[in-house]
């Protein structure tokens, strides 16, 4: 049950998308988002949709898992769609009570919904095809210039990889404690809201205790191996850009350029 949460979950694979350097994928995601927000016309939206479809196809990610990831956001998607639908001024089609639905409103709503869905799908593709470790490594290298202005890049990246590393562990732990308390008759599913909040106590106390214990153990283990931050640290797996990465980056830039040109010409 808890294990089924998709929280930036990684699906191992060996497709072109999986093999791209994490830095390439990070940059491409940013480029993709920029292009998405520049797109204004049917043609550019069409191009974006096509891009998303091709990327999903190449990565062989199950459509089901993408929809599963979209599910928790259905409310936000529908809400922003509705707001756009009702509050965009224009030539009215239908009028009822205090609302007017205009042609422009329909268009804005459809575009907004498509935009949010593509935005989420795009970032999902990144986390679905890149292992968390590779992702933080990539981020660390990309943010390296920020060290010049005293941003603790390495520490941030380390914190992030530790946090990511412990999400599954904590979920597993939660599952275990939940089962143990259920075995003693704890009830997490029924009852009034206050009862249910109270029922969480037997879960949260042991969870915090064990989280602190783990943090302590990890800190000791890191110190035992002489961890002292970024200085002169080497990596087992050094990231390397291949030809395919450069090709993907060029394609990405071309996409962004194309969308910009289209929007400049008002298409």
């Amino acid at each position: 049950m808890l294990k089924d949460i998709t929280l930036g979950q990684y699906f191992p694979g060996n497709t072109i998308v999986h093999r791209l350097d994490p830095r390439t994928k990070l940059i491409l995601t940013v480029v993709f988002i920029a292009a998405l927000f520049t797109a204004k016309s049917y043609i550019s939206y069409g191009i974006m949709l096509l891009t998303v479809a091709v990327c999903i196809g190449l990565s062989r990610i199950n459509l089901k898992s993408i929809f599963k990831g979209l599910k928790p956001l259905v409310f936000i998607i529908i809400l922003s769609g509705l707001l756009n639908l009702l509050y965009t001024q224009g030539k009215p089609i239908v009028e009822f009570w205090i609302f007017t639905i205009s042609w422009e409103g329909v268009r804005a709503a459809v575009f907004m919904i498509l935009r949010i869905m593509m935005l989420i799908t795009g970032t999902f593709l990144l986390t679905y095809t890149t292992s968390p470790i590779a992702l933080t490594d990539g981020m660390e290298i990309l943010m390296n210039p920020l060290k010049k202005i005293k941003v603790p890049v390495h520490e941030l990246a380390m914190m992030m990889s530790i946090a990511l590393r412990f999400i599954p562990t904590l979920i597993e732990e939660t599952d275990k404690i939940m089962s143990a308390q259920k075995a003693r008759g704890a009830d997490f599913e029924t009852g009034k809201l206050t009862d249910r909040a109270k029922a969480l106590l037997p879960l949260l106390v042991p969870l915090f205790v064990s989280a602190f214990r783990r943090a302590d153990e990890l800190a000791t283990a890191m110190e035992c191996r002489c961890y002292h931050g970024d200085e002169s640290r080497t990596r087992m797996k050094t990231l390397k850009m291949e030809n395919i990465d450069f090709a993907a980056l060029v394609l990405g830039i071309m996409l962004l350029a194309g969308i910009i040109v289209l929007s400049v010409f008002g298409l």
């Binding site: 732990e173 275990k176 404690i177 089962s179 143990a180 308390q181 075995a183 003693r184 008759g185 704890a186 009830d187 106590l201 037997p202 879960l203 106390v205 042991p206 205790v209 064990s210």
Partner: peptide, 24 residues
Amino acid sequence: FQYPEHQLFEETVYRDIAFGPKNM
């Protein structure tokens, strides 16, 4: 369960042992 001591949560030993019967 395995390592059952990880499930202890109450303020006192007595109340922790009483958790099961209380749920009954």
